[in-house]
Design a binder for these strands. Structure first.
Length: 424
DNA sequence: CTATAACTCTCAA
DNA sequence: CTAACGTTGAGAGTTATAG
């Protein structure tokens, strides 16, 4: 099987550039929620030494010095651009797995009569022209190799030019190439594994590829054994379902400023439940358990630390925001302690099951109102007018705890009122 | 004891 | 001016618990 892995170049920065061409050729960084750290960097920003996941305040001085543009993340914009990109890519193969907001796998078996490299260049050209995003393409016989080929395309290794096809290279050429690539670039090899296999002298892709799979399976995991097989061209991982039903739904955020009052935590928890419950309804699931957690700031070890989670089993599985809120607020009250500066809270909907007609186990003694219709109306209104238009009173209206996003660009593609006015 | 639930660790974007 | 460090989901493996 031949896979193509198509991945946008620093997606978030590229999205911003589509609507603000002044950002071209300049160092640009997009920040995480709360304007905390760098999650996307233009090539120019990378060249200045700004690392991925580096806290902004640590390089803010660089920003001043070199005129780096730092932007808050605008997920509404990126999600919309992603949808456009995926639609265009879907035209190139009937087999598409949307793997993340900025990349997808395409099954290429039906196109082997074509020149796949030329075909990939056409993919790049069309996505650039129709959506405005630059992408690179990696081609290979397994998903793991396709990811690696994409890495080479991006780094312009193996004479890439935005497309890298391992199928066109000999085993000898591949071995030489792999010997120059750090093992941490391999899909599935993260920080911890890099350390551990490094201690056994495995530091390059080539040394992992040629390592003994049985030994590594024994010492590490079956996952690593599969990775080694995939690096050697034996396919272990197939294309997956595009929109699998989630087994759990989490909503959590750090606060814009420390929170000490229970009332504020209640608003935050209620808001997160609002988000999570809407997601559950959207996929037709009901939750059997709700989990709530709160924590202080781990990056401030000098201030008193506290962290706690509480799980509540529900008498009857539900996706009703009001019932779930009630359960979550009860859990919150159990774990809340006065005297701490809370930094983050979150909720999780667990034990999700299919909420389809009549399959939910009912609670014989339940006195809860059936809010199914209310929820349906709420979802419709919020779909039209934006999330939070209709919400539970428990969410409050001040939202003093809400995250910081001080440098956000307009939602160019999803909000008329944020379109910049062009003077004639 | 086994089967499974619950939890921990790791990884990815 | 100050202080300031993401979110969501999955899978594997281990430990706790029920029966």
């Amino acid at each position: 099987m031949t896979f193509a892995l198509v991945d946008a170049n620093n997606m978030y920065v590229s999205c911003e550039r589509v609507f603000n061409p002044k950002l071209e050729n300049r160092p640009v960084v997009v920040l995480s929620n709360n304007d905390g750290m760098a999650v996307a960097r233009s090539a120019e920003a990378r060249a200045l030494g700004i690392k991925m996941a580096e806290p902004w305040f640590k390089w803010k001085h660089l920003a001043k010095q070199h005129g780096i543009v730092a932007l808050s993340s605008n997920y509404a914009l990126y999600a919309d651009m992603s949808n456009r990109m995926m639609k265009v890519l879907a035209q190139f193969s009937p087999d598409q797995e949307v793997y993340s907001i900025d990349e997808c796998f395409l099954g290429m078996d039906g196109f082997k009569h074509l020149d796949l490299v030329a075909y990939s260049h056409e993919i790049r050209r069309r996505v650039k022209q129709w959506v405005g995003l630059p992408v690179c393409v990696g081609l290979a016989e397994t998903k793991t190799l396709a990811k690696l080929a994409n890495h080479c395309a991006k780094k312009n290794l193996a004479g890439a030019g935005g497309v890298c096809d391992f199928g066109r290279m000999t085993q000898d050429e591949l071995s030489k190439l792999f010997a120059t690539i750090d093992v941490s670039e391999v899909w599935g090899v993260g920080r911890a594994l890099t350390q551990k296999v490094g201690a056994r002298g495995i530091t390059t892709v080539e040394s992992l590829r040629t390592a003994d799979p049985k030994t590594l399976r024994r010492e590490f995991s079956v996952t690593l054994e599969r990775t080694i097989a995939e690096l050697n061209g034996t396919q272990c991982v197939d294309l997956e379902d595009a929109n699998p039903t989630r087994q759990q739904i989490i909503s959590s955020r750090s606060f814009g400023a420390p929170v000490t009052e229970l009332e504020q935590l209640r608003e935050a928890v209620a808001s997160y439940i609002g988000i999570a419950a809407a997601k559950a309804r959207a996929q037709g699931s009901v939750a059997g358990m709700v989990q709530v957690y709160i924590r202080t700031n781990v990056f401030k070890p000098e201030s008193p630390q506290y962290q706690q989670t509480q799980t509540v089993p529900l008498p009857e599985s539900t996706s009703d925001t009001l019932q779930l809120t009630k359960a979550a607020l009860w859990a919150l009250k159990r774990i809340y302690k006065l005297g701490y500066a809370y930094h983050k809270a979150g909720v999780a909907l667990l034990n999700l099951t299919d909420g389809g007609d009549g399959t939910v186990q009912k609670d014989m003694f339940s006195t809860a109102k059936d809010n199914t219709k209310l929820m349906a109306v709420m979802d419709r209104i919020n779909a039209t007018y934006g999330r939070g238009t209709l919400r539970s009173a428990a969410e409050g209206s001040s939202k003093e705890w809400a995250m910081k996003r001080e440098r956000m660009s307009p939602c160019y593609t999803t909000r008329w009122d944020e379109l910049p006015v062009v003077k004639a």
